[in-house]
Amino acid sequence: MIGIDHLSPRSVGGVTIAQCVALIAPLAVVATADPERFALNLVAALVAALVWEGIFATLRRRVLSFHGVTTAFIVAVVLPPEIAIWQIVFAVSLGVILGELVFGGRGFGFVQPAAVALSLLLISFPELQLRQSTTALAVATVPGAVLLLLMGLISWRVLVGAIIASAVLLALRGAEMEPVTVATAMAFALVFLVCDPISAAATPIGRWIYGALAGGLVIVFSPPGAPTAEAMVFAALMSGVFAPLIDHVVILIHARREMRRHA
C-alpha cells in the first residue's frame, strides 16, 4: 500500500526514514558498549512501538504505519542498558500512545513521543539514571544532524537559539564550563528531541524563541555542572508543550502588524 508518494522526502514517511538513517550512527556507538543487552532492549522497544501502531491502524482501518521506529530508536539510545525489559515496553507504549497515537498518528500531535516516553519513565522510577552522553555519541550525532539540516527537517534557528540561551544562562550562573563539555552533553538530545520537526515551533521567529526556551530550560533543570540527559528530556517536553502557543502568538502579532500596515 505504501506508494512512492508516501516515501518522498517531504512526506511523513520520508521524514521518518530520514530520521532513522540519521539515528544509525548513534545507535551503533551505543551498541558497542554491550551489544547483546543493547540488541535485546532495541528489539523490545521496536516491538512495543510497532505492535501499538499495528493495533491502532487495525482499529482505525488505516494503512499500517511505522513511525514508532524513530521513537524506539531514540529511547534505546538514551535508556541505560541495565533497565528491565518491561520498563522499556512500559515507557515506549506510553510514549507512542499518549504522545502520538491518541492525536491520530505522526504529524497530528504536538509533543515528541520519545520525550513523553522518557519523562514518564523518569517520573515513574525516580531513581532511574539515563545514559549520559559521551564524546563518541556526540560525534556520531553530527553526520545525522547535518543530513537532517540539509533536508530541512531540523531548523538551524532552533539549534542556534538553544545554544545561545544555554550559553547565556551558564555564564550568568558563573559556571566555568568548557564549551566542548556542554556541547557533548547536549548534542544528541538537542538534535533528536528538541529539534524534532513535529514538536518544534514552525514560524521563523517562533523557532528562535522555542530554541531559546529549550536551551534555557536545560540549564535551569540541570544540577550545577554539565547538562544532564534527564534535564534535556524534560526541557524537550516542556518546550514542546509551549511550541504551539509560541507559534500562535507569533502569527497573531504578525497578522496585527499586517492589518495595521494595510489599514
Partner: peptide
C-alpha cells in the same frame, strides 16, 4: 521480587 512500583501512579 521483580516489580518496580510506578511512582507516577501515586501522583
Amino acid at each position: 521480587g521483580w516489580f518496580e512500583p510506578l511512582g507516577l501512579m501515586q501522583l
